[in-house]
Simulated scan of single mutants.
Amino acid sequence: MTADIFNALVVRAAEDNAYLRQIEQRSIDDLPDGDVLIRVHYSSLNYKDALSAIGNRGVTRNFPHTPGIDAAGTVAQSRVRGFKEGDPVLVTGYDLGMNTSGGFGQYVRVPAEWVVPLPEGLTLKESMVYGTAGFTAGMGISFLTERVAPEAGPVLVTGATGGVGSVAVAVLAKLGYTVAAVTGKTAEWDFLQGIGASQIVDRADAADTSGRPLLKGQWAGAIDTVGGEILATTIKSTLPWGTVACCGNVASPELPLTVFPFILRGVRLIGIDSQNCPMDLRLQVWRNLAGPWKVAAIENLSRQISMDDLSDNIDVILKGQQKGRVVVRLG
């Protein structure tokens, strides 16, 4: 390979609505225009990446395409004063990996306003242990900790073995919260307890279908990653003046709920949009994740794979079998 040629996972449309993915050589000249060219050292695997890799047009409109909504590496070229060659940086969210060539390639080129300087206290790899999932968890934790103190009662994390959920469990436990973790995977109870969960709630018990508008208050707050009936049950089970932050709809985008939890208990529901988070909040969340919220032995939340392993792991996450975070080394 020359300095202008690099490897990337490329997804191509094929016959019969199929999509093929393989590692190909690409040219830097093929990348979209942008202020900052980044040599990617690490990325991470998210559910949105897997959707892009199977041709989901709600995520990616045009193919061939390189997914990867996360990237961490060093600046190779910069047109702006704020970044210079060799600076360690990361990019999460915005349009990266959706309709802009993403972090599953060894180079990305993006607008300067998408780029975050690597926070002091994190390595490039550690930043991708967090990635979009960890950053999303961090936003939820920001909203929760502003309104709910550890002594207010236990907090609930749904989808706890996933990327967002596992980071949320670990960070909230570090901050002194009593964490109840929802999962349908009994084999992962030891994993969840190992990262800080004090209580395991079976997924079947987390969804109330009685139709009652309110349930017994149990949770001072919650971070929900799944939506649907589980989110509705969580809200109906939240204690007065509690806060629920939500970021997912893998169970359902529907919310079967009345207004009673909000007007009789003062429960607050806050949505998390990590893709378009304003830069001032984005930088604050990253500083927290790198500093006071940083989990000891953070890499225990993840496993590392190579580019050659990506396709198989995309199948794993689509089946709902991914545990914790998957870091992709682009070396």
Rank of each mutant, 00 (worst) to 15 (best):
Ala53Phe: 10
Gly163Leu: 04
Arg26Met: 14
Ala204Leu: 09
Asp190Cys: 03
Ser142Trp: 13
Val108Arg: 03
Gly86Asp: 10
Arg147Glu: 12
Phe260Val: 10
Ile272Glu: 09
Met279Trp: 15
Phe6Arg: 01
Ala137Arg: 09
Pro119Asn: 01
Ala187Asn: 07
Gly82Phe: 14
Thr238Glu: 04
Ala14Ile: 14
Val182His: 02
Val171Pro: 06
Ala18Ile: 08
Lys319Pro: 05
Gly271Gln: 10
Ala53Ser: 12
Ile298Met: 10
Ser198Asp: 14
Ala76Ser: 11
Pro111Ala: 10
Met128Arg: 08
Ala297Leu: 12
Phe104Ile: 12
Trp241Gln: 13
Leu269Lys: 04
Pro119Leu: 07
Asp308Lys: 11
Leu122Thr: 06
Ile23Lys: 09
Arg203Ile: 06
Thr136Ile: 01
Gly34Cys: 07
Val59Ser: 04
Val157Phe: 01
Ala152Glu: 02
Ala160Val: 03
Asn46Ile: 11
Arg61Trp: 02
Ser127Pro: 02
Gly121Val: 05
Gly121Leu: 05
Thr238Phe: 05
Asn62Pro: 07
Trp286Thr: 09
Lys294Cys: 04
Thr132Lys: 02
Gln322Lys: 11
Gln284Cys: 13
Pro240His: 00
Gln193Ile: 09
Gly163Tyr: 03
Phe135Cys: 08
Arg268Met: 13
Asp87Cys: 02
Asn288Thr: 06
Arg12His: 15
Thr233Gln: 02
Gly176Phe: 05
Leu269Phe: 06
Gly162Ser: 03
Val148Thr: 07
Arg12Met: 10
Leu301Phe: 00
Ala76Leu: 08
Trp293Met: 01
Ala112Cys: 15
Ser198Gly: 15
Arg109Glu: 05
Val328Leu: 15
Asp95Gln: 06
Arg325Cys: 11
Lys216Phe: 11
Ala149Gln: 12
Ala112Ile: 13
Thr66Cys: 10
Ile298Lys: 02
Glu254Val: 11
Ile223Lys: 00
Ala180Asp: 00
Ser274Val: 09
Thr178Ala: 02
Asp280Gln: 11
Val40Lys: 00
Pro213Arg: 10
Lys174Val: 03
Phe63Trp: 00
Pro150Thr: 00
Ile23His: 12
Ile23Ala: 14
Thr92Tyr: 08
Gly140Lys: 06
Asn313Met: 08
Gln25His: 15
Trp189Arg: 14
Ile317Tyr: 00
Ser302Asn: 05
Pro64Arg: 08
Ala13Leu: 12
Leu255Cys: 08
Gln199Val: 15
Gln77Asn: 13
Thr258Asp: 15
Val244Cys: 00
Ala187Pro: 05
Val267Asp: 06
Gln193Val: 15
Phe191Trp: 01
